[in-house]
Nucleic acid binder design. Structure first.
Lengths: 204, 204
DNA sequence: CCTACCGATCGGTAGG
DNA sequence: CCTACCGATCGGTAGG
Protein backbone atom coordinates (compact mmCIF):
# COMPACT_ATOMS: atom_id res chain seq x y z
CA UNK A 1 0.00 0.00 0.00
CA UNK A 2 2.82 2.32 0.84
CA UNK A 3 4.34 1.41 -2.49
CA UNK A 4 1.05 1.98 -4.24
CA UNK A 5 0.62 5.44 -2.75
CA UNK A 6 4.16 6.39 -3.64
CA UNK A 7 3.76 5.37 -7.27
CA UNK A 8 0.52 7.24 -7.48
CA UNK A 9 1.98 10.39 -5.95
CA UNK A 10 4.97 10.18 -8.24
CA UNK A 11 2.66 9.97 -11.25
CA UNK A 12 0.68 12.96 -9.97
CA UNK A 13 3.88 14.96 -9.76
CA UNK A 14 4.81 13.99 -13.29
CA UNK A 15 1.39 14.96 -14.64
CA UNK A 16 1.34 18.33 -12.91
CA UNK A 17 4.90 18.97 -14.03
CA UNK A 18 3.92 18.18 -17.61
CA UNK A 19 1.22 20.86 -17.55
CA UNK A 20 3.55 23.31 -15.85
CA UNK A 21 6.46 22.72 -18.24
CA UNK A 22 4.13 23.09 -21.19
CA UNK A 23 2.82 26.49 -20.15
CA UNK A 24 5.91 28.08 -18.61
CA UNK A 25 8.71 26.04 -20.13
CA UNK A 26 11.08 23.81 -18.17
CA UNK A 27 13.59 26.44 -17.07
CA UNK A 28 11.00 28.98 -16.00
CA UNK A 29 9.12 26.39 -13.92
CA UNK A 30 10.30 26.20 -10.34
CA UNK A 31 9.93 23.28 -7.97
CA UNK A 32 8.02 25.68 -5.70
CA UNK A 33 5.51 26.33 -8.51
CA UNK A 34 5.08 22.62 -8.94
CA UNK A 35 4.74 21.94 -5.20
CA UNK A 36 2.15 24.67 -4.83
CA UNK A 37 -0.07 23.16 -7.48
CA UNK A 38 0.11 19.88 -5.63
CA UNK A 39 -0.58 21.54 -2.28
CA UNK A 40 2.68 20.51 -0.65
CA UNK A 41 6.06 22.06 0.16
CA UNK A 42 8.82 22.10 -2.44
CA UNK A 43 11.11 20.02 -0.22
CA UNK A 44 8.48 17.30 -0.02
CA UNK A 45 8.76 16.64 -3.73
CA UNK A 46 12.15 15.12 -3.12
CA UNK A 47 10.66 12.18 -1.21
CA UNK A 48 9.28 11.07 -4.55
CA UNK A 49 11.72 12.27 -7.15
CA UNK A 50 15.46 12.66 -7.31
CA UNK A 51 15.69 15.91 -9.23
CA UNK A 52 13.85 18.34 -11.47
CA UNK A 53 15.54 16.88 -14.50
CA UNK A 54 14.41 13.39 -13.61
CA UNK A 55 10.83 14.54 -14.20
CA UNK A 56 11.76 15.94 -17.59
CA UNK A 57 13.44 12.68 -18.51
CA UNK A 58 10.39 10.67 -17.54
CA UNK A 59 8.11 12.87 -19.64
CA UNK A 60 10.33 12.86 -22.70
CA UNK A 61 11.37 9.21 -22.78
CA UNK A 62 7.81 8.20 -21.95
CA UNK A 63 6.68 9.98 -25.10
CA UNK A 64 9.48 8.45 -27.15
CA UNK A 65 8.34 5.03 -26.02
CA UNK A 66 4.74 5.75 -27.01
CA UNK A 67 5.76 6.91 -30.47
CA UNK A 68 7.76 3.75 -31.12
CA UNK A 69 5.13 1.46 -29.63
CA UNK A 70 2.40 2.88 -31.83
CA UNK A 71 4.57 2.71 -34.91
CA UNK A 72 5.53 -0.90 -34.17
CA UNK A 73 1.90 -1.83 -33.62
CA UNK A 74 1.05 -1.18 -37.27
CA UNK A 75 0.33 -4.60 -38.84
CA UNK A 76 2.84 -5.52 -41.51
CA UNK A 77 1.29 -5.71 -44.93
CA UNK A 78 3.69 -5.82 -47.84
CA UNK A 79 0.88 -5.44 -50.33
CA UNK A 80 0.00 -1.95 -49.21
CA UNK A 81 1.22 0.91 -51.34
CA UNK A 82 3.91 3.07 -49.75
CA UNK A 83 1.43 5.91 -49.69
CA UNK A 84 -0.83 3.78 -47.52
CA UNK A 85 2.06 2.73 -45.31
CA UNK A 86 3.00 6.36 -44.87
CA UNK A 87 -0.60 7.22 -44.07
CA UNK A 88 -0.72 4.59 -41.36
CA UNK A 89 2.50 5.86 -39.84
CA UNK A 90 1.17 9.41 -39.88
CA UNK A 91 -2.07 8.35 -38.22
CA UNK A 92 -0.13 6.47 -35.53
CA UNK A 93 1.98 9.55 -34.91
CA UNK A 94 -1.06 11.84 -34.66
CA UNK A 95 -2.81 9.47 -32.30
CA UNK A 96 0.10 9.61 -29.87
CA UNK A 97 0.23 13.40 -30.02
CA UNK A 98 -3.51 13.96 -29.61
CA UNK A 99 -3.69 11.55 -26.66
CA UNK A 100 -0.83 13.38 -24.95
CA UNK A 101 -0.95 17.02 -25.98
CA UNK A 102 0.80 18.41 -22.90
CA UNK A 103 3.52 15.77 -22.89
CA UNK A 104 3.95 16.32 -26.62
CA UNK A 105 4.53 20.01 -26.08
CA UNK A 106 7.24 19.21 -23.54
CA UNK A 107 8.69 16.53 -25.78
CA UNK A 108 9.01 18.84 -28.76
CA UNK A 109 10.00 22.05 -26.98
CA UNK A 110 12.01 21.13 -23.91
CA UNK A 111 14.27 18.26 -24.94
CA UNK A 112 17.30 20.50 -25.19
CA UNK A 113 17.27 20.92 -21.42
CA UNK A 114 18.22 17.29 -21.00
CA UNK A 115 21.82 16.86 -19.89
CA UNK A 116 24.15 14.19 -21.20
CA UNK A 117 23.94 11.29 -21.71
CA UNK A 118 20.19 11.70 -22.00
CA UNK A 119 20.40 14.39 -24.63
CA UNK A 120 22.37 12.11 -26.94
CA UNK A 121 20.02 9.25 -26.21
CA UNK A 122 17.09 11.47 -27.20
CA UNK A 123 18.76 12.57 -30.41
CA UNK A 124 19.57 8.97 -31.32
CA UNK A 125 15.97 7.91 -30.81
CA UNK A 126 14.73 10.80 -32.88
CA UNK A 127 17.11 9.92 -35.67
CA UNK A 128 15.95 6.31 -35.56
CA UNK A 129 12.30 7.33 -35.65
CA UNK A 130 12.80 9.64 -38.59
CA UNK A 131 14.64 6.78 -40.28
CA UNK A 132 11.47 4.71 -40.24
CA UNK A 133 9.68 7.40 -42.22
CA UNK A 134 12.63 7.87 -44.52
CA UNK A 135 12.62 4.18 -45.40
CA UNK A 136 9.05 4.35 -46.59
CA UNK A 137 9.80 7.35 -48.76
CA UNK A 138 12.95 5.82 -50.19
CA UNK A 139 11.12 2.65 -51.16
CA UNK A 140 8.24 4.65 -52.57
CA UNK A 141 10.68 6.55 -54.73
CA UNK A 142 12.35 3.36 -55.94
CA UNK A 143 9.02 1.99 -57.13
CA UNK A 144 8.17 5.32 -58.76
CA UNK A 145 5.19 5.78 -56.49
CA UNK A 146 6.69 8.95 -55.03
CA UNK A 147 8.41 11.64 -56.95
CA UNK A 148 12.07 12.39 -56.61
CA UNK A 149 12.83 14.27 -53.42
CA UNK A 150 15.52 14.35 -50.76
CA UNK A 151 14.22 11.89 -48.14
CA UNK A 152 15.65 13.73 -45.19
CA UNK A 153 14.13 16.95 -46.40
CA UNK A 154 10.74 15.31 -46.99
CA UNK A 155 10.68 13.70 -43.56
CA UNK A 156 11.52 16.99 -41.85
CA UNK A 157 8.67 18.69 -43.68
CA UNK A 158 6.21 15.90 -42.99
CA UNK A 159 6.98 15.39 -39.32
CA UNK A 160 7.10 19.07 -38.53
CA UNK A 161 3.69 19.63 -40.03
CA UNK A 162 2.41 16.82 -37.80
CA UNK A 163 4.22 17.98 -34.71
CA UNK A 164 2.27 21.21 -34.45
CA UNK A 165 -0.96 19.31 -33.85
CA UNK A 166 -0.57 19.44 -30.08
CA UNK A 167 -0.94 23.22 -30.12
CA UNK A 168 -4.49 23.27 -31.45
CA UNK A 169 -6.00 19.82 -30.91
CA UNK A 170 -8.94 19.73 -28.51
CA UNK A 171 -10.60 16.53 -27.37
CA UNK A 172 -14.02 18.11 -27.88
CA UNK A 173 -13.16 19.11 -31.44
CA UNK A 174 -15.00 17.87 -34.50
CA UNK A 175 -12.16 15.79 -35.86
CA UNK A 176 -11.01 12.50 -34.38
CA UNK A 177 -7.27 11.82 -34.22
CA UNK A 178 -7.67 9.34 -37.06
CA UNK A 179 -9.47 11.89 -39.20
CA UNK A 180 -6.76 14.42 -38.52
CA UNK A 181 -4.15 11.88 -39.52
CA UNK A 182 -6.00 11.11 -42.75
CA UNK A 183 -6.42 14.78 -43.61
CA UNK A 184 -2.77 15.51 -42.99
CA UNK A 185 -1.53 12.52 -44.90
CA UNK A 186 -3.94 13.43 -47.70
CA UNK A 187 -2.48 16.89 -47.84
CA UNK A 188 1.12 15.67 -47.76
CA UNK A 189 0.70 12.80 -50.17
CA UNK A 190 -1.74 14.30 -52.68
CA UNK A 191 -1.13 17.99 -52.14
CA UNK A 192 -3.41 20.93 -51.82
CA UNK A 193 -4.24 20.97 -55.49
CA UNK A 194 -7.26 19.28 -56.89
CA UNK A 195 -7.06 16.86 -59.75
CA UNK A 196 -6.07 13.41 -58.52
CA UNK A 197 -9.34 12.06 -59.80
CA UNK A 198 -10.45 15.01 -61.90
CA UNK A 199 -8.59 16.50 -64.82
CA UNK A 200 -8.09 20.06 -63.62
CA UNK A 201 -4.50 19.59 -62.66
CA UNK A 202 -2.52 20.77 -65.61
CA UNK A 203 -3.03 24.50 -65.62
CA UNK A 204 -0.18 26.88 -65.10
CA UNK B 1 29.94 59.25 -32.66
CA UNK B 2 28.90 58.42 -29.15
CA UNK B 3 25.45 57.68 -30.52
CA UNK B 4 26.92 55.54 -33.24
CA UNK B 5 28.96 53.50 -30.79
CA UNK B 6 26.00 53.00 -28.53
CA UNK B 7 23.78 51.81 -31.32
CA UNK B 8 26.42 49.42 -32.51
CA UNK B 9 26.98 48.01 -29.04
CA UNK B 10 23.26 47.57 -28.58
CA UNK B 11 23.07 45.63 -31.82
CA UNK B 12 26.00 43.48 -30.71
CA UNK B 13 24.16 42.67 -27.51
CA UNK B 14 21.05 41.73 -29.44
CA UNK B 15 22.97 39.47 -31.81
CA UNK B 16 24.82 37.67 -29.03
CA UNK B 17 21.59 37.30 -27.10
CA UNK B 18 19.92 35.80 -30.14
CA UNK B 19 22.56 33.09 -30.34
CA UNK B 20 22.40 32.51 -26.61
CA UNK B 21 18.63 32.31 -26.45
CA UNK B 22 18.59 29.92 -29.36
CA UNK B 23 20.97 27.45 -27.78
CA UNK B 24 19.96 27.66 -24.11
CA UNK B 25 16.47 29.09 -24.30
CA UNK B 26 15.46 32.48 -22.93
CA UNK B 27 14.84 31.48 -19.32
CA UNK B 28 17.99 29.43 -18.97
CA UNK B 29 20.13 32.24 -20.39
CA UNK B 30 21.46 34.62 -17.75
CA UNK B 31 22.58 38.17 -18.21
CA UNK B 32 25.93 37.06 -16.83
CA UNK B 33 26.21 34.46 -19.63
CA UNK B 34 25.46 37.15 -22.15
CA UNK B 35 27.90 39.65 -20.63
CA UNK B 36 30.67 37.08 -20.55
CA UNK B 37 30.34 36.37 -24.26
CA UNK B 38 30.67 40.09 -24.88
CA UNK B 39 33.64 40.41 -22.54
CA UNK B 40 32.00 42.84 -20.13
CA UNK B 41 30.31 42.73 -16.73
CA UNK B 42 26.61 41.93 -16.45
CA UNK B 43 25.83 45.28 -14.89
CA UNK B 44 27.33 47.04 -17.90
CA UNK B 45 24.65 45.62 -20.16
CA UNK B 46 22.17 47.94 -18.51
CA UNK B 47 23.84 51.01 -19.95
CA UNK B 48 22.54 49.83 -23.31
CA UNK B 49 19.37 47.96 -22.59
CA UNK B 50 16.53 48.37 -20.15
CA UNK B 51 15.87 44.75 -19.29
CA UNK B 52 16.38 41.16 -20.38
CA UNK B 53 12.90 41.06 -21.83
CA UNK B 54 13.53 44.14 -23.91
CA UNK B 55 16.09 42.11 -25.87
CA UNK B 56 13.58 39.34 -26.42
CA UNK B 57 11.02 41.86 -27.66
CA UNK B 58 13.49 43.33 -30.11
CA UNK B 59 14.34 39.92 -31.52
CA UNK B 60 10.76 38.75 -31.85
CA UNK B 61 9.14 41.89 -33.22
CA UNK B 62 12.12 42.40 -35.52
CA UNK B 63 11.36 39.01 -37.04
CA UNK B 64 7.65 39.74 -37.26
CA UNK B 65 8.48 42.87 -39.21
CA UNK B 66 10.71 40.97 -41.61
CA UNK B 67 8.02 38.39 -42.29
CA UNK B 68 5.44 41.05 -43.12
CA UNK B 69 7.83 43.14 -45.17
CA UNK B 70 8.81 40.20 -47.33
CA UNK B 71 5.21 39.16 -47.80
CA UNK B 72 4.18 42.68 -48.73
CA UNK B 73 7.03 42.95 -51.21
CA UNK B 74 5.54 40.27 -53.44
CA UNK B 75 4.35 42.00 -56.63
CA UNK B 76 0.60 41.86 -57.04
CA UNK B 77 -0.42 39.85 -60.04
CA UNK B 78 -4.07 38.87 -60.22
CA UNK B 79 -3.44 36.61 -63.18
CA UNK B 80 -1.32 34.20 -61.19
CA UNK B 81 -2.95 30.97 -60.06
CA UNK B 82 -3.48 30.66 -56.33
CA UNK B 83 -0.97 27.84 -56.32
CA UNK B 84 1.61 30.28 -57.67
CA UNK B 85 0.59 32.94 -55.19
CA UNK B 86 0.98 30.44 -52.39
CA UNK B 87 4.34 29.38 -53.73
CA UNK B 88 5.55 32.98 -53.71
CA UNK B 89 4.39 33.46 -50.15
CA UNK B 90 6.11 30.25 -49.09
CA UNK B 91 9.35 31.31 -50.75
CA UNK B 92 9.17 34.71 -49.05
CA UNK B 93 8.65 33.01 -45.70
CA UNK B 94 11.57 30.63 -46.24
CA UNK B 95 13.85 33.47 -47.31
CA UNK B 96 13.23 35.29 -44.04
CA UNK B 97 13.87 32.16 -42.00
CA UNK B 98 17.03 31.12 -43.80
CA UNK B 99 18.49 34.61 -43.59
CA UNK B 100 17.83 34.70 -39.82
CA UNK B 101 18.07 31.16 -38.52
CA UNK B 102 19.00 32.06 -34.96
CA UNK B 103 16.38 34.80 -34.65
CA UNK B 104 13.84 32.42 -36.18
CA UNK B 105 14.54 29.84 -33.52
CA UNK B 106 13.96 32.47 -30.84
CA UNK B 107 10.88 33.76 -32.63
CA UNK B 108 9.26 30.33 -32.85
CA UNK B 109 10.36 28.91 -29.49
CA UNK B 110 10.57 31.76 -27.00
CA UNK B 111 7.59 34.02 -27.72
CA UNK B 112 5.67 32.72 -24.74
CA UNK B 113 8.17 34.41 -22.42
CA UNK B 114 6.90 37.79 -23.55
CA UNK B 115 4.81 39.51 -20.91
CA UNK B 116 1.68 41.48 -21.61
CA UNK B 117 0.86 43.49 -23.58
CA UNK B 118 3.57 42.20 -25.89
CA UNK B 119 2.36 38.65 -25.76
CA UNK B 120 -1.06 39.68 -27.07
CA UNK B 121 0.54 41.86 -29.68
CA UNK B 122 2.60 38.92 -30.87
CA UNK B 123 -0.43 36.64 -31.03
CA UNK B 124 -2.39 39.24 -32.98
CA UNK B 125 0.39 39.61 -35.52
CA UNK B 126 0.66 35.87 -35.90
CA UNK B 127 -3.06 35.59 -36.45
CA UNK B 128 -2.91 38.32 -39.09
CA UNK B 129 0.00 36.67 -40.86
CA UNK B 130 -1.73 33.30 -40.94
CA UNK B 131 -4.78 35.10 -42.29
CA UNK B 132 -2.85 36.11 -45.37
CA UNK B 133 -2.17 32.48 -46.14
CA UNK B 134 -5.72 31.49 -45.34
CA UNK B 135 -7.05 34.01 -47.84
CA UNK B 136 -5.08 32.45 -50.66
CA UNK B 137 -6.34 29.00 -49.78
CA UNK B 138 -9.94 30.16 -49.43
CA UNK B 139 -9.86 31.80 -52.84
CA UNK B 140 -8.16 28.80 -54.36
CA UNK B 141 -10.93 26.61 -53.00
CA UNK B 142 -13.62 28.91 -54.37
CA UNK B 143 -12.18 28.66 -57.85
CA UNK B 144 -11.86 24.89 -57.51
CA UNK B 145 -8.11 25.11 -57.85
CA UNK B 146 -7.59 23.64 -54.40
CA UNK B 147 -9.51 20.78 -52.94
CA UNK B 148 -11.86 21.16 -50.04
CA UNK B 149 -10.03 21.51 -46.74
CA UNK B 150 -10.36 23.48 -43.53
CA UNK B 151 -8.28 26.61 -44.19
CA UNK B 152 -7.12 27.02 -40.64
CA UNK B 153 -6.02 23.43 -40.55
CA UNK B 154 -4.22 23.70 -43.88
CA UNK B 155 -2.37 26.85 -42.86
CA UNK B 156 -1.22 25.28 -39.60
CA UNK B 157 0.13 22.30 -41.50
CA UNK B 158 1.82 24.41 -44.15
CA UNK B 159 3.42 26.97 -41.90
CA UNK B 160 4.63 24.44 -39.36
CA UNK B 161 6.35 22.44 -42.07
CA UNK B 162 8.09 25.65 -43.13
CA UNK B 163 8.94 26.76 -39.64
CA UNK B 164 11.26 23.87 -38.97
CA UNK B 165 13.64 25.02 -41.69
CA UNK B 166 15.74 27.04 -39.26
CA UNK B 167 16.83 23.87 -37.47
CA UNK B 168 18.65 22.34 -40.41
CA UNK B 169 19.37 25.12 -42.92
CA UNK B 170 23.05 25.85 -43.48
CA UNK B 171 24.30 28.70 -45.61
CA UNK B 172 26.89 26.40 -47.19
CA UNK B 173 24.25 23.83 -48.11
CA UNK B 174 23.44 22.79 -51.64
CA UNK B 175 20.01 24.37 -51.74
CA UNK B 176 19.34 28.09 -51.97
CA UNK B 177 16.48 29.55 -49.90
CA UNK B 178 14.47 29.92 -53.08
CA UNK B 179 15.06 26.30 -54.04
CA UNK B 180 13.98 25.20 -50.57
CA UNK B 181 10.86 27.28 -50.88
CA UNK B 182 10.07 25.77 -54.26
CA UNK B 183 10.63 22.24 -53.04
CA UNK B 184 8.43 22.77 -50.00
CA UNK B 185 5.66 24.43 -51.91
CA UNK B 186 5.90 21.66 -54.50
CA UNK B 187 5.48 19.07 -51.78
CA UNK B 188 2.58 20.89 -50.15
CA UNK B 189 0.76 21.85 -53.32
CA UNK B 190 1.32 18.74 -55.44
CA UNK B 191 2.01 16.16 -52.76
CA UNK B 192 4.57 13.44 -52.43
CA UNK B 193 2.89 11.27 -55.00
CA UNK B 194 3.94 11.21 -58.60
CA UNK B 195 1.54 11.71 -61.41
CA UNK B 196 0.86 15.38 -61.98
CA UNK B 197 2.33 15.06 -65.43
CA UNK B 198 2.49 11.29 -65.71
CA UNK B 199 -0.43 8.90 -65.46
CA UNK B 200 0.69 6.75 -62.54
CA UNK B 201 -1.52 8.41 -60.02
CA UNK B 202 -4.58 6.22 -59.80
CA UNK B 203 -3.36 3.08 -58.08
CA UNK B 204 -4.70 2.10 -54.71
C1' DC C 1 31.83 50.29 -18.57
C1' DC C 2 33.15 48.99 -13.58
C1' DT C 3 32.74 47.91 -8.41
C1' DA C 4 29.82 46.87 -5.02
C1' DC C 5 25.80 45.38 -3.85
C1' DC C 6 20.42 44.49 -3.33
C1' DG C 7 16.39 41.36 -2.31
C1' DA C 8 14.43 37.43 -4.38
C1' DT C 9 14.54 33.04 -5.79
C1' DC C 10 16.65 28.83 -7.32
C1' DG C 11 17.35 23.37 -6.76
C1' DG C 12 18.22 20.66 -3.24
C1' DT C 13 19.61 18.53 1.73
C1' DA C 14 19.34 17.35 6.83
C1' DG C 15 16.78 15.64 10.09
C1' DG C 16 12.75 14.53 11.85
C1' DC D 1 5.40 15.25 4.18
C1' DC D 2 7.24 19.35 7.11
C1' DT D 3 10.54 22.92 9.14
C1' DA D 4 14.64 24.92 8.66
C1' DC D 5 18.06 25.90 5.99
C1' DC D 6 22.23 25.75 2.44
C1' DG D 7 25.22 27.97 -1.19
C1' DA D 8 24.54 29.59 -5.71
C1' DT D 9 22.63 32.45 -8.81
C1' DC D 10 19.18 35.50 -10.61
C1' DG D 11 17.77 40.39 -12.83
C1' DG D 12 18.75 44.69 -11.79
C1' DT D 13 20.37 49.41 -9.30
C1' DA D 14 23.50 53.09 -7.22
C1' DG D 15 27.09 55.67 -7.93
C1' DG D 16 30.93 56.66 -10.11
Amino acid sequence: MTTKEKVSRKKQIELQATELFRTKGYSASSMRDLAQELGIEAASLYSHIRSKEEILQKIIFGMAERFFEKLNAIPKNENLSFAKQLEQSIIAHIEVITKNTAASAVFFNEWRHLSEPNLSKFLDLREEYEGRFRDIITKGMETNEFRDIDERFAVFAILSSLNWTHTWYKVEGKMSPEQIGRQLSGLLINGLKKGIIGVDNLEK
